[in-house]
Design a binder for these strands. Structure first.
Length: 978
DNA sequence: ATCGGTAGGGTTTTT
DNA sequence: CCCTACCGAT
């Protein structure tokens, strides 16, 4: 007997068709190949295609899968049969279930509505947001008597509430018969045991390097919240021990009387939103999956009809809880066994914001058992054994150089912040060693870290690197393999299209692309053109705005620009009319007025209006048509109003609804990491690895939140204070939050992993303010960050819609120098009162109104002033802002430069600061500083501050006369300093 | 070198 | 809301 052991995991999977399999298929391990061949293998056993379910999570992947299946099976099986086979995305499969069997599925929740098969799926999140807002407004009207306080607290939080409803939905939590089941209710109350364990762990004493005890994690986390918030009922003595948080408060903060009210509120809004959508024959993705799930869960006959002998799930790391349960219900029980194969890579799970649950794959076995129990609670639905499953791990990589494979594993251990402690043990267990390379790239592989000075310098750095890659033809070469025979086809110089620049966010990509085009480097943005940012989209929005308010300058600018007006001309047109402070309709061209009148005459036909606008400019192109079809889909049955449409378009500008730009020239691709998933490129430049950008910290803003451990919590409450009824910050729920929230850089680490594993040969990192990801990677791999610090920096903050001006200061700044702020210099001055900068007594009372941080007012005024000086239109009810508007209007300067950040070397120190406004005149430069003080008593100190600004400006503009002025906004007084 | 306090700055991804 | 960097004290 021949002893043949099959050691290739890939082959193992293809041949093992019976039983439960968890396949860990890392990046570039030939996952699609294996799935398709396994599918073929099952077919070879004479299984009918309609008995094999194969689902993935993207339309592209599903199409690709189907095509390849047809390709290898078309000789054996009828193509039409294959075309009809259930190989599709998860969502289209759910849609099929609901359409075929789900007409009365709302009844499972005790709702009277039906879900007819012709329902509309809401695909655009901005659109849904707007629909929900509308619904929420009527909901508050109907329930004001019961939830008065909640509505006051959650007035503007419809987005946040919608998010919570969707999260509950993807966890399989829904109200039945207009109440929460006991289990659902328990989940909404939170998990005290888990909370308690976390509390104790975070509140452990923290050993100090000096031998004693230092502030522990919990105390540290909470003290930072104390800075920006005011907790009127907080007794610091009571909640803090010297170095820790007082454990006595553990129970006090968890058991909260207000919680029940919120739980009940969520139930009502959940049900009524469902009814709202169903009344309109609409549904969102989350509810569609839920109804598919309910259809299977509650109806045994349908379940039997729908079950498959073979189930394969691709991209399993992208499933959420209800989806996994639904998958379990779809497996046909065959002698207490099922044939289920889930394929995925936990290291590439990057859709947490869509409520995917990474534990589905990282703790597959536990999840199976847990979900089986839950599904069988009231009725035995899952009869098969879930304890017997086999794990297959793919080890061979058919994409990258060894250097990259080795390096990419390191990305999973990297720190997200300097303080973070990564649990490396878990990673060591689940990812013991780098994947094995199948293609050898020898010396044509490299990884480097680069540092720029500032953002615009980073753009230039990336572009310089791109040129270098193309020009240094001996150093950089692309080795092309025949992927079937493993032979080298050619070694050739780098082309633009070999290069992909990745960024954590879109903004950086888009700006970089603009810079690249300017520099003559062909570049495409990977997401396609954003349709409402196109010329067509902008002009449609502009006219809609004018239709709503013909004084809207934001509407007039694009319209008049299309008519050939220049920006200063348009500004002039508006300045004339705003002199006396009342905004009037400007003196506009007759043709525009006529067209506007025409649009008004067909006011109630939104689609017709859009068609007219596009027709006026002859935009009868692909983009124009797409705009019409999108607006048509939103406006079915005339559901939305003009102002709603304006808001949706405005919010859609930088997001969904892309149109392929049809580019296939040789160009560099620039895209987000999310968009790059599944792709591979010979050269990858991961840019924008900057603090705050990558990793980003997701913050759950909003006054209500839900977390599995904390349950439903409100961050605000009402109470009496000084005879008035005020809204306060709730320190208890803030503290619970800081306990329950994990350090969630895990997902960003996986994003880093995804980014690194896109590269085949060359991988470069760039940043101007390297985040912990970059410094930590540099440390782990021993690779230096290459940078040039002999720069002088002085630059403006980027202003939206305005180009950034940049000025250079003489003198060099060394990396290790100490920084000083003008304020700290002021404090060093002899006559400085210690309370400088603190709010005056009357200011302290203010924040009790609405969670405004103490310095918010000054911030708002400065921000507004910055925008005004940049020529942006500001409409504000705040008197001080209108005063600044006037003030700037009277300046009559040749040029205004607001918010100039400077670094000014002096001796061994560097002074760092921001100048509010520079006004340039023929004979002088004025430095202007806004103050929101209620008196002039600190003027002497400000003299020091402005004195420093003066020195800086005199150094840049040698020989110019420089004058310093303070504008006291509250006093409406200008003072020239001598 | 380490710790606590303080100040300032920026804020995402999309089936 | 959270991170980094600075400052002063030890």
């Amino acid at each position: 007997m021949a002893l043949i052991t099959n050691i290739d995991p890939q082959q193992d999977l293809i041949e093992s068709t019976e039983g439960i399999y968890l396949v860990d298929a890392g990046a570039g391990t030939g996952k699609t190949y294996s799935i398709v061949n396994r599918y073929k293998n099952i077919i070879d056993k004479n299984v009918d295609p309609e008995n094999i379910l194969l689902v993935t999570f993207t339309v592209n992947a599903a199409n690709q899968m189907k095509q390849r299946i047809i390709k290898i099976l078309s000789e054996k099986i009828d193509v039409f049969k294959l075309l009809e086979a259930p190989v599709m995305t998860f969502h289209s499969f759910c849609s099929l279930i609901v359409k075929k069997y789900g007409v009365s599925s709302p009844s499972y929740l005790g709702l009277k509505n039906y879900l007819p098969a012709n329902f509309d799926i809401i695909e655009n999140s901005e659109f849904e947001s707007e629909m929900f807002r509308k619904f929420y407004m009527s909901f508050t009207d109907r329930h004001r008597n019961i939830y008065e306080n909640i509505f006051y607290i959650l007035q503007k939080e419809s987005d946040n509430i919608l998010k919570i409803i969707k999260k509950l939905c993807s966890l399989g939590i829904y109200p039945e018969d207009r109440k929460w089941s006991k289990d659902a209710h328990d989940l909404l109350k939170g998990d005290y045991e888990a909370y308690s364990a976390l509390f104790d762990d975070l509140n452990k004493p923290e050993a100090s390097m000096k031998g004693g005890e230092k502030f522990n994690k919990l105390k540290n986390r909470f003290t930072s919240a104390l800075r920006d918030k005011l907790y009127p009922d907080l007794d610091e003595e009571k909640i803090f021990d010297e170095k820790r948080v007082n454990s006595d408060i553990k129970d006090e903060i968890f058991f909260d009387d207000l919680q029940e009210e919120y739980i009940s509120f969520l139930k009502d809004i959940y049900i009524e939103y469902l009814e709202f959508l169903l009344d309109r024959n609409q549904i969102n993705f989350e509810f569609m999956v839920m109804f598919a799930y309910l259809t299977l869960l509650k109806n045994e006959k349908v379940r039997e009809k729908l079950q498959f002998d073979y189930v394969m799930i691709d991209e399993f790391q992208d499933t959420d809880e209800i989806q996994f349960k639904l998958i379990m219900l779809l497996c046909r029980n065959l002698n207490n066994k099922i044939n289920l194969c889930v394929v995925g890579d936990w290291k590439q799970g990057i859709y947490g914001f869509r409520n995917t649950k990474i534990e589905n794959i990282t703790q597959f076995g536990n999840s199976l058992s847990l979900y089986k129990d839950e599904l069988n609670q009231d009725e035995t639905r899952i009869k098969y054994d879930v304890t017997d499953f086999k794990k297959i791990t793919f080890e061979n990589n058919y994409r990258s150089s060894y250097k990259i494979l080795e390096f990419s594993r390191e990305t999973l251990f990297v720190k997200g912040s300097a303080q973070e402690e990564v649990d490396s043990e878990i990673i060591e267990i689940n990812f013991k060693e780098p994947l094995k390379e199948k293609f050898n790239f020898d010396e044509f592989a490299e990884i480097e870290f680069y540092q720029a000075v500032d953002k615009s310098d980073e753009y230039q750095l990336v572009l310089k690197k791109i040129s270098e890659l193309l020009n240094e033809k001996e150093k950089y070469k692309i080795r092309v393999y025949n992927k079937a025979t493993f032979e080298i086809i050619e070694e050739r110089p780098v082309k633009y299209s070999d290069i992909c620049v990745l960024s954590r966010n879109k903004k950086f990509c888009l700006e970089l692309q603009r810079e690249a085009i300017k520099a003559g480097i062909p570049a495409n943005y990977g997401g396609g053109l954003e349709i409402f940012s196109s010329e067509q989209g902008i002009i449609v929005l502009a006219w809609l705005r004018l239709l709503s308010d013909e004084r809207d300058i934001q509407g007039w600018i694009p319209v008049l620009e299309m008519d050939g007006y220049t920006y200063p001309e348009i500004k002039g047109l508006f300045e004339k009319i705003s002199e006396n402070g009342i905004r009037l309709i400007p003196d506009i061209p007759e043709s525009a007025a006529k067209f506007l009148k025409h649009l008004k005459s067909i006011r109630n036909n939104l689609l017709g209006i859009v068609e007219e606008i596009l027709g006026k400019y002859n935009f009868n192109d692909a983009i124009g048509n797409k705009i019409i079809s999108i607006i048509n889909s939103w406006n079915k049955n005339d559901l939305i109003s003009l102002n709603e449409l304006i808001r949706i378009i405005d919010r859609s500008k930088n997001s969904e609804h892309k149109i392929g730009t049809g580019e296939n020239t040789d160009a560099v691709l620039m895209q987000t990491i999310h968009a790059s998933k599944g792709m591979e490129y010979p050269v990858v430049i991961l840019s924008n690895v900057n603090n705050h950008n990558f990793p980003v910290f997701r913050q759950d803003s909003g006054s209500i939140y839900f977390h599995e451990i904390s349950g439903v919590r409100s961050k605000k409450f009402f109470a009496h204070k000084n005879e008035y009824y005020f809204m306060f910050d709730n320190w208890k729920s803030d503290l619970i939050r800081s306990i329950c929230k994990k350090n969630n850089y895990d997902e960003d680490r996986r994003l880093l992993y995804v980014a690194a594993t896109r590269a085949m040969q060359y991988l470069f990192f760039t940043a101007y303010s390297p985040s912990s990801f970059m410094t930590s990677l540099s440390e782990r791999t021993g690779k230096e960050i290459i940078g040039n610090f002999d720069y002088e920096i002085i630059s403006n903050k980027p202003i939206p819609d305005k180009t950034v001006t940049k000025i250079k200061l003489p003198g060099k700044i060394a990396k290790s120098k100490k920084f000083l702020s003008p304020h700290s210099l002021m404090e060093l001055a002899p006559d400085v009162e210690p309370e400088y900068g603190l709010p005056e007594p009357e200011d302290v009372e203010q924040p009790f109104q609405f969670n405004k941080s103490r310095f918010e007012f000054g911030k708002i005024v400065h921000e507004a002033a910055n925008k005004i000086a940049n020529g942006l239109e500001i409409n504000s009810d705040i008197e001080e802002i209108n005063r600044i508007k006037k003030f700037i209007g009277y300046l009559n300067a040749n040029e205004l430069k607001p918010e100039i950040d400077f670094l000014y070397p002096e001796g061994d120190k560097v002074i760092r600061g921001t100048i509010d406004l520079l006004a340039f005149y023929d004979d002088r430069i004025e430095i202007i500083d806004y103050k929101t003080d209620r008196s002039r008593k600190y003027e002497d100190k400000y003299r020091i501050q402005l004195g420093i600004y003066k020195k800086v400006i005199e150094k840049i503009y040698k020989g110019k006369k420089v004058i310093c002025r303070i504008y006291y906004v509250r006093l409406d007084e200008t003072v020239e300093l001598s």
